[in-house]
Design a protein around this nucleic acid. Structure first.
Length: 155
DNA sequence: GCCAACGTTGGC
DNA sequence: GCCAACGTTGGC
């Protein structure tokens, strides 16, 4: 499969792993996603896809930077590790349930683009945009080229 | 296969 | 810390 560049948004709790952490390490394996919808999106990712890096469950939830997809999806090793929080006893190396990608740092926004501010652009972004849809808890979600462009312009 | 109970996410 | 929304589990 080879199509043109796509865009995504990935959420993280900055207490656990922040944009500054990503800047420091450069590239990070995105372990621990245990939601089928989010996994399916990661399966569609290709090297070079754009990622909006989002901080959740923190003082000011919002987009904090830009990253990119560093490799295609591969099995998340933490699912096989009985000592890991992400261990899944129903998964086997022969038939892994969970995949992940590696994410690379691109740049940090000059400021946090708060969710509250993003919501004010719901008309342009579209009501169906998962980030601002009421009750949406998806941690990995697709972003259209138009949404990408708009969100970057708000920085 | 239904659905109540439970667990988790994440904004507030 | 609260709680709405949603996903998953498991009894039937």
């Amino acid at each position: 499969m080879s199509t043109r560049k796509r865009y995504w948004l990935m959420k993280t709790e900055p207490d656990a792993f922040s944009i500054d952490d990503l800047k420091r390490v450069g590239t990070e394996p995105w372990t621990g996603v245990r939601n089928y919808q989010a996994r399916n999106f990661m399966r569609q990712m290709q090297v070079g896809d754009g990622v909006l890096f989002y901080h959740s469950s923190c003082e000011v939830p919002g987009i904090v930077g830009v990253a990119k997809v560093a490799c295609a999806a591969y099995p998340d090793p933490t699912q096989f590790d009985a000592k890991s929080d992400y261990f899944d006893p129903k998964s086997t190396p022969e038939e892994p349930r969970w995949q992940m990608v590696d994410v690379s740092f691109e740049r940090k926004f000059k400021r946090v683009l708060p969710l509250e501010e993003i919501k004010r652009h719901s008309a342009e972004l579209g009501e169906e945009f998962a980030l601002i849809r009421r009750g949406s808890r998806l941690s990995v979600l697709p972003v259209t080229a138009a949404q990408w462009k708009l969100l970057l312009s708000l920085e």
